[in-house]
């Protein structure tokens, strides 16, 4: 009984403290891989105080590729205007992982691309399906997310990036 009530207290305090914290929503620290297979820890995702877009995708996911190919046409302008950086995290496994770099280069993407074949980063961020996009503000806090992609979604995303770049907050 003692143990039970102790656990209950512990868990409820963990839960409510965590829930009441709006300011701490930083990127969870998980090991993923660079395109050459070496380890990279996601706590090192930084962009000099500028916003970061984290996008989960896969080579077998059509809407993911549509989204990233559409953004690529405007990416230079986005970077110039807001200093934003797009981090594309591929969840491809061994079957397709070798196709990631050739696809990225073949399409001329200028994004920072990482591999998450074990799904550790995907799980840490509670991603169900790809594409799934997160927006990180200049303080490294995740302030927005979006699941799925429809043609034109990139405009909403960029509006939000602009807000962050202007120092506004996102509701």
């Amino acid at each position: 009984m003692y143990l039970k009530s102790l656990l209950l207290t512990l868990f409820s305090s963990v839960f409510f403290t965590a829930m009441s914290q709006t300011e701490n929503n930083s990127i969870p620290a998980v090991d993923i891989q660079n395109l050459n297979g070496t380890t990279f820890n996601t706590s090192d995702l930084k962009n000099d105080g500028n916003p970061i877009i984290i996008n989960f995708w896969a080579t077998w996911c059509s809407p993911c590729k549509r989204e990233l190919n559409n953004i690529t046409e405007m990416y230079d302008m986005w970077v110039e205007e807001t200093g934003v950086k797009l981090v594309a995290v591929s969840i491809d496994d061994t079957r397709n992982i070798a196709k990631v770099a050739p696809y990225v280069n073949g399409k001329g993407w200028e994004y920072d691309v990482y591999l998450d074949p074990n799904g550790d980063f995907k799980r840490a961020l509670g991603v169900n399906n790809v594409p799934h996009t997160f927006l990180v503000d200049g303080n490294g806090q995740i302030v927005w997310q979006h699941n799925s992609y429809s043609e034109g979604d990139e405009y909403e995303l960029f509006e939000l990036v602009q807000k962050l770049a202007d120092g506004e907050t996102i509701e």
Binding site: S13, V14, F15, T17, A18, M19, Q21, N24, N25, S26, P28, A124, L125, G126, V127, N128
Partner: peptide
């Protein structure tokens, strides 16, 4: 306790 707790975060997903 509070100091440590304030660094914590709960995330998840549902389907």
């Amino acid at each position: 306790f509070d100091q440590v707790m304030s660094k914590g975060k709960i995330r998840g997903n549902f389907q």
